[in-house]
Design a protein around this nucleic acid. Structure first.
Lengths: 247, 247
DNA sequence: AGTGGCCAAGTGGTCATACCAATTTGAGTA
DNA sequence: TACTCAAATTGGTATGACCACTTGGCCACT
């Protein structure tokens, strides 16, 4: 109700003011702030007060104080110079992340795979063959395949990441998008690519496994792009999904 | 050897000392600390230094400073159990996941890096060089380095993954573990390895970047293993931390 | 005895100044 | 051109003083 006139503490006010400047981006990351003595004069407070405010910001991670050198704004968030912000992750971005991670996983999986792992992959492929017409089932089996490949490495952290990355495809947005380009033929093609991956892993050929996974994800991107080409005029597809599609 | 009289900054030392007192429970939650003037006299430092240390602890949430009244220990909520959480993933498992993912990231980053990215890495390295004695700061800068490398790819999904994987190292369990093997020398070695990675990325050499990242993580694992080797008979290290260590 | 206001001691908050220590910069030298 | 080193710059610490707020007890009044 009466919100006590908090923050009578001057150094808190100074810290708040500077923090908002940094958060608002008016102080570029990496740039140097004026010297303590100068700040004190400009803000009309004493140097100890300035120092106390700066210590607050340093503990909070906003600035970096270097003895004898100066005070610098921390580069906490990636500059993202030309790659624009926007916290939305489109399917292209997801595919790029998968290309980086899953290729490495396939490579490693080929080194560690044992007959039991191959058998499980074969089982997955067999079920996939009977589910090409059922979008939901096909999608679930696709996810299962990639998680199984990751599972060969037997690393919880990686497994969770691969799982979560595929879970993003289960959101309403992606499902609507998927309806534009997923069909029996695309799932059949994906399954064939899965088979190539499976063969490379079974052969214990890391390079081939990596290449096969790369080819699979590249093809997925091509299928996705093609669908955009056909439907491009359809405004139901957010424009943001098209950017950052690069290689 | 002589631990170089810790991070030159006096108020940091004072803050560290008081924080450990609180964490060790020697200062009961809710109890009042001596007055600033009294603390200054007891510790043999000036009052401004005491104040700066107290501000650090207040921002970190360990104490509560009430104007005109006194300084009180916060009623913290510390489980402080040695039992790792349910889905706990050992440090070796984490390192393996990082080896798979971050090597691939370094490789790709070398292809995409621009001068601005290198400048940010250099800034990080410069700050790291001044923080070798400060565990908290060194760890934060280590995390920042890896996130910055990942950031070159400008892919949020990857960025978040790398960030979250490093956040796991900030838990009390890992901090306790880290105290066994992290020191100025290990951080210096890590920094040198970072520099090699930076050079490879700056040179636009994907294979070298991958190798450098691999070497860095391998060395990290070796440092970790060595510490286990020395302390193996020390029961203060939970057995769970040793499991899943397999190469 | 209970209530209220008042005052003084204690404590954190701020200020001013001075000097120390680390870094940076640039002029001078080999 | 490259190196050396000292002055200038900048953060770090110390001292002492004064202000603002909190607290608790004294005291007058009810």
């Amino acid at each position: 109700m009466f919100s006590a006139v908090e923050s009578r503490r001057l150094y808190r006010q100074v810290a708040d003011q500077m923090r908002s400047l940094i958060e608002r981006g008016e102080l570029a990351p990496g740039s140097r702030l004026p010297a303590e003595r100068e700040l004190a004069q400009k803000l009309g407070v004493s140097r100890p007060t300035i120092r106390e405010a700066l210590i607050v910001l340093e503990v909070e991670g906003f600035i970096d104080i270097r003895m004898g050198s100066g005070i610098y704004v921390t580069a906490r968030t990636v500059p993202a110079l030309d790659a624009p912000p926007e916290d939305f992750e489109g399917p292209f971005e997801l595919l790029r992340a998968r290309a980086v991670v899953e290729c490495a996983i396939a490579e490693e999986a080929a080194r560690l795979a044992r007959p039991e792992h191959i058998a499980v992959l074969d089982d997955n492929l067999a079920r996939m063959a009977t589910a090409l017409e059922d979008r939901r089932q096909a999608l679930a089996l696709d996810r299962e395949f990639h998680v199984l490949v990751s599972g060969i490495i037997a690393n919880q952290t990686l497994n969770r990441f691969v799982g979560s990355i595929h879970d993003m495809r289960m959101t309403p947005y992606f499902e609507k998008l998927a309806s534009y380009f997923e069909n029996t033929d695309t799932w059949r093609a994906a399954m064939e690519e899965h088979r190539v991956i499976r063969d490379a892993i079974a052969a214990g050929d890391p390079a081939a496994a990596r290449a096969a996974m790369r080819a699979h994800l590249d093809q997925s991107q091509i299928r996705l792009s093609a669908s955009f080409g056909e439907e491009q005029s359809d405004s139901t597809i957010p424009a943001a999904w098209r950017r950052a599609g690069g290689n």
